[in-house]
């Protein structure tokens, strides 16, 4: 069964939902498992008693494989119900990690023929299992909640707080130097499909303005590192770019969760990224140091619960 949700385009509200929900928010933690030497007849009984269609085979908390209804039918057909689960389970299992956003589970269901995915925790131990019906149930509950919230907003419209809305700092308006460029792009946690778009647009704009290639390159690096930090670590943020008076200013502002130890975060090699983010080639602990090195000026303001604002500026020779 496919889950007909567009994980790339689609409604912003739905996208925010499926990116903010994690696999661990949706998975079933109550696991029915069997060991490798459990007989297939016993496995069948477990499935029937618990009303489930797949049983993970484990050695303590380590996942060895999974026995599905299909595996069971084959064993039945061949009269091998007395044999152990180990010789009938599917050993190459596609797994998810509990920190992954729900979008991963949805695209896995649509991509693979499997109907359930065991979920592993940070240490690689089996933490739960996720099925299409888990996803649909949670999504319906969350969508209902969101629709109620939206209906309430329509009934009682709130005034927009200008300080909270992204864009130019109103205090800086009216200065004599003309703004050459002002761009702003939202980012979303774990949106690796969209990651880099802000920096690509920014780089393109700098190039079009005829700014020196080596400065464009440094600005693009700083921008990309900060953008990726928002995608990897924040709950979403905004990338803002302002060119004025021979200065390029990159402001990366996010809503949280904030950095506990800023000094450590600026140390090369320090990283809080989890394993699947590292497997994509990110989270090496080079991001902030790279951004800092690429700029002429660097400032960071962050505290847990408040979010993070990083500001990088680069000087450039304004046109003749």
């Amino acid at each position: 069964m496919d889950i007909p949700i567009n994980t790339e385009g689609g409604s912003r509200v739905i996208l925010e939902l499926i990116y903010s929900l994690k696999v661990r928010d949706v998975m079933t933690r109550k696991l029915v498992t069997a060991s490798a030497d459990t007989g297939m007849r016993e496995v069948q009984q477990l499935m029937r008693d618990n009303g489930i269609t797949g049983i993970p085979i484990v050695e303590r908390t380590r996942l060895l494989g999974i026995v599905s209804i299909g595996d069971l039918l084959k064993a039945l057909d061949q009269g091998q119900m007395a044999e152990p689960a180990a010789s009938h389970m599917s050993a190459s299992v596609v797994t998810l990690e509990e920190e992954m956003p729900l979008t991963f589970a949805i695209s896995y269901l649509n991509r693979y023929e499997f109907r359930r995915f065991p979920v592993l925790d940070k240490t690689g131990s089996l933490a739960g299992i996720i099925t299409a019906s888990d996803i649909i149930k949670t999504l319906l509950v969350e969508m209902n909640r969101e629709v109620e919230r939206l209906e309430a907003t329509i009934a009682h419209p709130q005034t927009i707080d200008p300080a909270a809305s992204p864009g130019l700092d109103p205090g800086s308006a009216g200065t004599p130097e003309e703004i050459v460029l002002s761009l702003s792009f939202p980012t979303r946690q774990y949106d690796f499909d969209g990651a880099g778009k802000a920096s690509a647009e920014f780089k393109k704009a700098l190039k079009q303005l005829g700014i020196e290639a080596s400065i464009v390159r440094r600005a693009a690096i700083a921008s990309y590192e900060l953008e990726l930090n928002q995608v990897i670590h924040s709950t979403g943020g905004v990338m803002e770019y302002i060119l004025r008076g021979g200065r390029i200013t990159i402001v990366a502002r996010d809503q949280g969760p904030g950095i506990a130890d800023v000094q450590a975060a600026l140390t090369e090699g320090f990283s809080t990224a989890n394993n699947w983010i590292r497997s994509l080639g990110f989270g090496a602990g080079l991001g902030l140091p790279n951004a800092k090195r690429s700029g002429d000026d660097f400032s960071i303001d962050s505290a847990p619960g408040r979010g993070t604002t990083v500001c990088v500026t680069l000087n450039y020779a304004a046109g003749p």
Binding site: A195, I221, L228, G281, F282, A284, R293
Partner: peptide, 26 residues
């Protein structure tokens, strides 16, 4: 490591890697 690539790779160069996804292109 993509951050490492960003800070060290030169212009008009080739990247040798196993990171086969969209972010590498970015």
């Amino acid at each position: 490591l993509l951050s490492d690539v960003m800070s060290k790779a030169g212009e008009a160069s080739t990247l040798v890697t196993i990171q086969a996804h969209k972010n590498t292109v970015a």
